[in-house]
Structure formats: structure tokens, C-alpha cells
Design a protein around this nucleic acid. Structure first.
Length: 496
RNA sequence: GCCGCCUUAGCUCAGUUGGUUAGAGCGCUUGAUUGUGGAUCAAGAGGUCCCCCGUUCAAUCCGGGGAGGCGGUACCA
């Protein structure tokens, strides 16, 4: 009794936080990337590609340790034992590239880059371990002119991506204001605990839009317990300090100029704060002169943008409309990209300060937002399918498909082995707009039959009887074979 | 990382107070309607009831552990 051999069958599944994407989703993303890239290019930014892997020490502070080499990033050791990691953004590779090629690059150096990045962290709703970024940066260009340009281009990119004016706002802040705020609130200690406290304050402010004022006050003070029962430790500020921080957050006024006026008084004792106010004032004025007013670019004092490398202006684009998720609950769309000035990145490699400013567009979230906003999904159409009814006529069918392609129509010949009905079913599943049919009947007459599958589907709603459905053969007509392309194009044109 | 909920057919979910053949709807496959996708009708395939260990004569169901999913929270260069 031989036991049945156990064959190993791997489970067909995609790793957590990654996903497969097919058809329309991909073409939509490609379309959006090319529109955004076109904006970047029109501003004179050159495309750059860098590899997926970088040496881990080039990426920044996430050096792998023995116990957890993959915390945050995906890392592995090359055969010479050097640690390499998948890039987690496009900025660190840019800094490496600039440092490596510093002497030969034109400065300021303007490049844009599109590509996947990887983060080894827990995936959440709308967050994956691989996603696409679309960045543009000016390296070696001093403030404020480069910052103004990037902000204006960011707004242009949003509109090119399909977000209507008024549906987004680029929110602008400056890290020096935040530094000044901490300074004037008396948070200036040098101990590690003091640093932690300052970081905690900034993190709290970053959550204003989500937790509201009350939640932020808790995080600035004793801490907050969320609805899942988890407790977040607070910054333990005194009441007077909390009041000052909240006053700052709420200092945003109707116009950018008014906000700057108000802030000037607020920071009269802080050089850093004053520098930030001046920078914002200048930027807002220049942007306004370019036609980018408060409808598109607004100073918003609760924008923080990460914690580490930004040194000056920071900005992010928020979507103004709300949508519902698949269960009908209102869904916040929030930030779809952002950036800012970082003057220290190249210094890590070269020891010299190289000022830089850049922007990063979150393509997947943008696509999700547009998808959610769309009321009627204009479903992407599949190829025209040429049916293969007579096996000995394949060359003729391929010829028809070739003619259609030459005329710019997506077309394919059915290559499976099934009968007429199955072939139409296949065309249906491919979302084909048209089936091209030539059996012996048509061939004898030198004709082809063009079947409008979309129209046919509509007509079928009013037909109950199968006989009528078949004999009526709705939504199809025959033409001379020489008129194939013209007839197909005519049917396609009906749908735009 | 922390907290909570969940895991039964391809999908959405019933169900078994622990007992022999675990179900539905939709989908899928095949066929009928003489060369036409829809509709209708008929037949069929598809399940280690997430995994491992334990309790028990007996576990899909009870207990422990693990994995995966969802949601929140933290971190996010």
C-alpha cells in the first residue's frame, strides 16, 4: 500500500501589504503619472532614475542592527556583507546621487523622479508596503525663489492630475515658526527628555485635523486614551504653555497677509520665529503676484510634515471634498502629497550645506480620491475582439486585427478553442466594445459582421424571449470587408 | 508595537447545544434553445469549516498557542 506521495503546493497568495494590480487601475495610474511628469518637465526638471537598492547607511538613520535588520526598511546583506536596503523614499537616493556626482552637475540641479518605494511597516487602510512616489526637487537653489516655484508647480500638478481648482488647497507653514513656538513656550532644555518633549508637542499638533482641539490639548498635557483603549503619553506641558501653543495653532486668518501680521507680534522675542514669518510673508506675496492666491495656497499653522529633515517652509496638499467608503461611511481623504525645504541632506555625504527644496505627490491616494469622487465610472474599454470561427481562417482574422491596429484601434484575435457563444462570452468579459464576426456566410459574400456589444447589452434588457434575442440579432450589421476599419471606428465614435 | 473584532465553497454569509452525507444565494463549468454575449431551463464541479497542540469515545464547534484579515491607536525617514 504505497501512500500517496505528498506533493508540495505553495499557497498562491500575495505577501501582506503588497498587491496585484490589473488593467484599468494601472492605465489610470500611468496616465496620471505622465500628466504630473509633464508638468514637472515643463518647469525644466529632468527625469532621473536610481536603483531600488541603496547601501543602508546612505538611506539615513535606519541602520540595521543584529536583532532587527528589517525594522522600517527591507534590508539584506550583499555577498561582501554590506547592508543594502530597498529605498523608502526618493529623497535619500537623490541626496546620494547629488553627493556622488556633485562636481559634474549643473547647480541648481533640478530633477524629477517617479517610482516605487518600499516600507516595512504595518499596512493600514490605503497604506501598503510598496507604493509609487512622484517627486520633484531643486538642489542648490536658495530660498525663497525655489520654494515659491515648487509650491506653484505643486498646485499645477494637482490640477494636471485632475483635481479641480477649489477641490484642493496647498497648506503652507514654516519649521522655524514651530521652533520659535517651542522657544517662546520655554521648551529649550538640552536634556534628551527635553528633546522628547518637543517632539511630542509637534506630534500632537500634527493631529489637530484628526483629533480636534480637545484631543490635541490632552496630548499636550497628560496624555490621551483612544477609543480602542490604548493610551498615548502626553507632553506634560503646563496649562499656560498649552494655551500659548493653542493660540499659535489658531492664529490662522482669512488671508495669508493677515496671518503673517498676527504672527509678527507673536514672535517678537524669537529670531527663529521671525525668520519663519518673514519667509512665509515673502512666499505668500510672490505666489499671490503669480496668481496663486488663498484659493490655492494658504498658510496653515498646524502643518508639521514629518519631524526630521525639514528646515524651512513645509507644505502639503489637502483635498477639500469628502467621500464615502464602500460601507457608506464618510471618509477623510486628507493629504495627497507635500514637501518642503531641507538644507542638510547632502551634508551627510559631503560635509557642505546644500540647500534644497522638493515636493512629493502621493499618486495612489490621489487616484483613490479621484475614483471616489467619480459618480459615474466611465469604465475603461477593452480591445475589439475578432472572433475565430473557422480554424483554417486564422491568417485572415489576424489580418483584420492588424488593419484595426494600424488604424489605432486596440484589437485582438480570439485565440482560445471555444465555440461561437463562448467567444462572445469571452469578449464580454474583456469589456470589448465590439466583436468582429466572419463565418463562412460572411466570407462567401466578402463581408464582415460588426457586433456592438455595448448597445446589445442595453437592448437585451427589453427582451425576455430567447428566440427574439437570437433571431433579432440586435446591434449588429454587416459591411464589405474593405469597410471593416471605417465601420468599427464609426461604432467606437458613438461612444466617444 | 498596543487594543478590539473577525476567519465555514471563487464571493457574501447561514449552521452544527460536540455525533455518521456541512448548507443557501450569487458566481463558475457543461448542455438545451440548429451561427450569437443577456433571459430561461437542466445537470455538474468546488470545502483539511485558517493552522498546530490540548480536553474528549468523538472537535468545524470547547481550551491554549500561532498565522492571516479588518478597524482603531502609535511610529512613519
Amino acid at each position: 500500500m504505497a501512500k500517496k506521495q505528498k506533493t508540495f503546493r505553495p499557497k498562491a497568495r500575495v505577501p501582506r501589504g503588497f498587491r496585484d494590480r490589473l488593467g484599468a487601475e494601472l492605465t489610470a495610474e500611468r496616465e496620471m503619472l505622465s500628466r504630473i511628469s509633464a508638468v514637472y518637465e515643463s518647469y525644466g526638471f529632468d527625469p532621473l532614475e536610481t536603483p531600488a537598492f541603496e547601501f543602508t547607511d546612505a538611506l539615513g538613520k535606519f541602520l540595521p542592527d543584529v536583532d532587527r535588520p528589517n525594522a522600517g526598511v527591507f534590508s539584506l546583506q550583499d555577498d561582501d556583507d554590506q547592508w543594502m536596503s530597498l529605498r523608502y523614499d526618493l529623497t535619500a537616493p537623490l541626496a546620494r546621487f547629488v553627493a556622488e556626482n556633485y562636481d559634474s552637475l549643473p547647480k541648481p540641479f533640478r530633477r524629477y523622479q517617479v517610482g516605487p518605494v518600499w516600507r516595512n511597516e504595518k499596512p493600514g487602510p490605503g497604506r501598503f508596503r510598496q507604493f509609487t512616489q512622484c517627486d520633484a526637487d531643486s538642489v542648490g537653489a536658495p530660498a525663497p525663489d525655489a520654494d515659491v516655484e515648487i509650491c506653484a508647480m505643486f498646485a499645477d500638478a494637482m490640477e494636471a492630475a485632475g483635481i479641480a481648482r477649489g477641490d484642493y488647497v496647498v497648506k503652507l507653514n514654516d519649521r522655524r515658526l514651530l521652533a520659535g513656538l517651542l522657544e517662546t513656550a520655554g521648551l529649550v532644555g538640552l536634556e534628551p527628555d527635553d528633546e522628547l518633549q518637543r517632539v511630542t508637542v509637534l506630534r500632537a499638533l500634527d493631529k489637530l485635523d484628526r483629533l480636534g482641539e480637545a484631543g490635541v490639548r490632552l496630548l499636550l498635557g497628560p496624555g490621551r486614551k483612544d477609543e480602542s483603549g490604548d493610551f498615548t503619553d502626553g507632553a506634560k506641558l503646563k496649562d499656560a504653555q498649552i494655551d500659548r501653543v493653542m493660540t499659535f495653532i489658531n492664529a490662522t486668518q482669512a488671508t495669508n497677509a493677515e496671518t503673517c501680521d498676527r504672527l509678527a507680534g507673536f514672535f517678537s522675542t524669537s529670531a527663529q520665529g521671525e525668520a519663519g514669518v518673514t519667509a512665509l510673508d515673502t512666499m505668500a506675496a510672490q505666489l499671490g503676484a503669480l496668481g496663486y492666491g488663498e484659493d490655492r495656497i494658504q498658510i496653515d499653522l498646524s502643518i508639521i510634515r514629518g519631524l526630521d529633515y525639514y528646515t524651512g517652509p513645509v507644505f502639503e496638499a489637502d483635498l477639500m471634498f469628502t467621500t464615502e467608503d464602500e460601507k457608506g461611511r464618510p471618509m477623510r481623504l486628507g493629504s495627497v502629497g507635500g514637501g518642503g525645504r531641507y538644507d542638510g541632506l547632502v551634508k551627510r555625504f559631503k560635509g557642505i550645506e546644500v540647500p534644497a527644496v522638493g515636493v512629493s505627490v502621493g499618486v495612489s491616494r490621489l487616484l483613490e480620491a479621484l475614483e471616489a469622487k467619480k459618480t459615474t465610472g466611465d469604465s475603461v474599454s477593452g480591445p475589439v475582439v475578432v472572433l475565430a470561427l473557422e480554424k483554417n481562417q486564422m491568417a485572415a482574422y489576424q489580418q483584420m486585427a492588424a488593419e484595426l491596429r494600424a488604424a489605432g484601434v486596440r484589437a485582438e484575435v480570439y485565440l482560445g478553442g471555444s465555440n461561437f457563444a463562448k467567444q462572445l462570452k469571452y469578449a464580454d468579459k474583456r469589456a470589448a466594445p465590439i466583436a468582429v464576426i466572419q463565418g463562412s456566410d460572411e466570407r462567401d459574400k466578402g463581408e464582415v459582421t460588426i457586433k456592438d456589444l455595448v448597445l446589445g447589452a442595453e437592448l437585451s434588457k427589453n427582451i425576455q424571449d430567447n428566440k427574439e434575442w437570437r433571431e433579432g440579432q440586435p446591434a449588429q450589421f454587416s459591411v464589405k470587408q474593405s469597410e471593416l476599419v471605417a465601420a468599427v471606428k464609426k461604432v467606437l465614435a458613438r461612444r466617444g
